[in-house]
Amino acid sequence: MAEPMGLRERKKLQTATRIYRVAVGLFVERGFDHVSVQEIADAAEVSKMTVFNYFRTKEDLVFHPMEEHFSDAARAVRERQPGESAVAAVRRQFLELVESRDPSVGLNPEPLSRQVRQLVMGTPVLMERAFLTFQKGTRELADLLAAETGDLMLATVAAATLSAARNALVEEHHRRIAEGESADQVAADAAERARKAFDLVEKGLKDYAVKA
């Protein structure tokens, strides 16, 4: 069981959360390129130095709270139980995130995660960082699998396939909500869709889309 946070840690978390939410609000309202760190500090009622104590760069004000999730698949494989396959581990973890309605998979009803996604999609410098960070997570998974199996090429194929399956599921959640469905409606069949997606990965593609 995790140790409860002390007062100092709680205050630091509260400060970081306030800065993050203020920054995202300003970015969404005015555009990432049109908001300075000093303006964020003023709106959050902290110094500019305090902002940089919590977030190393302006881009971190968008990515820092969610960047750890780019390594979720590698974490699931690294921590899996003996006898559990890589696909089973990633599927299990994803289903747990679906069950908890985690913002990282696009199912949390709070609009903040979707605002962040729209911000990233509409800002080239943030899109580039998102792409590179996604690739870094896939490479981390590939290196982990290669260390276990001794075959980097097949490990790279497996990692790319698992990462693509996760990303396709998350994109589907965001697409449906953007088209008007509620987070509750999308979550209702999210687990079933996830099982189908990872079943496809697990079974391979030899019988997929055979032309009549």
Rank of each mutant, 00 (worst) to 15 (best):
P82W: 04
E3V: 15
G150R: 12
Q93L: 15
V77M: 10
F198G: 04
L26K: 09
A168Q: 09
A188T: 06
D189I: 01
L132V: 01
L145C: 07
A89Y: 09
V46R: 03
A43Q: 15
N167Q: 13
A209E: 13
K48F: 03
V24F: 08
Q115F: 04
R193F: 06
E59R: 11
A209H: 10
Q38V: 13
D189M: 01
E99L: 13
R193Q: 08
T57C: 03
S71Y: 12
D102K: 10
L97C: 01
P103C: 11
V24W: 04
M1R: 15
N167E: 15
F131M: 07
A23I: 02
V51R: 05
L145E: 02
V116I: 15
T15C: 06
Q93I: 08
R101N: 07
A194R: 02
F131H: 13
A158R: 15
N108G: 03
G83E: 02
L126R: 00
N53G: 06
E68Y: 11
F27K: 02
R166N: 09
L95C: 11
L152K: 13
G25F: 06
A43L: 10
L61K: 01
E45I: 03
A178P: 03
V105G: 01
I177R: 05
E84M: 15
K11G: 03
R101Q: 14
T50F: 06
Q185A: 15
V51N: 08
M66N: 11
Q14Y: 04
L145A: 01
A44H: 02
E9S: 14
G150T: 11
V116P: 02
L13W: 06
E68G: 14
R18I: 00
D189Q: 11
L145R: 05
R92L: 11
T15L: 04
V28R: 12
K58D: 08
A159Y: 00
S85C: 09
Q185W: 08
H174N: 03
E140K: 11
I177G: 05
D151F: 10
V120K: 00
F198M: 11
A155W: 00
T138S: 13
H174E: 07
F94H: 09
L112A: 08
P103E: 12
F134Y: 15
A159V: 05
L107I: 01
S47R: 09
E172P: 02
T123R: 01
F55T: 02
K48D: 05
M1G: 14
D151R: 08
M66P: 02
F63N: 05
A155K: 00
T133S: 00
V116M: 05
E192V: 09
D33F: 05
P111V: 04
E110K: 10
R117G: 00
R176E: 05
R75Q: 06
F134L: 06
M66G: 10
E67N: 10
V87P: 05
E39Y: 07
V105W: 00
A168E: 13
A159S: 06
R195P: 07
T149C: 13
L154N: 14
V125C: 14
R129S: 04
V90A: 01
E79I: 06
